[in-house]
């Protein structure tokens, strides 16, 4: 999925895992892999394709991080954020 993103997207880095998005940046969810450990919960919280998501802060250890999703703050572990592919939209 990562590789597909890199080439189809045209510009490098436009599609990347949510876990790689720096704090303060905003992006749009393109794909949520069912391999995400909290797959069902992630969908429940509104992280589905097309959703805008912003990285708000990270915890003292850097993982988990907090994301702004549909007006609510949601904390995700790196493993979960790794399984969510996003497209950077805030440039």
């Amino acid at each position: 999925m990562l590789a597909i993103g890199y080439y189809i997207g045209g510009e490098a880095m436009s599609i990347l895992p949510l876990a790689s998005l720096p704090v303060g940046r905003e992006a749009t969810v393109r794909y949520v892999s069912p391999d995400a450990p909290s797959y069902r919960r992630i969908l429940d919280l509104g992280l589905v394709g097309g959703t805008k998501v912003k990285v708000i802060r990270s915890s003292p250890f850097g993982d988990p991080r907090a994301y702004l999703v549909r007006g609510a703050v949601v904390a995700l572990r790196r493993e979960d954020a790794q399984a969510i592919m996003v497209e950077v939209t805030d440039e």
Partner: peptide
């Protein structure tokens, strides 16, 4: 009311 979109789902 402050997070209506998520709640409406």
């Amino acid at each position: 009311a402050t997070c209506l979109e998520r709640n409406l789902a």
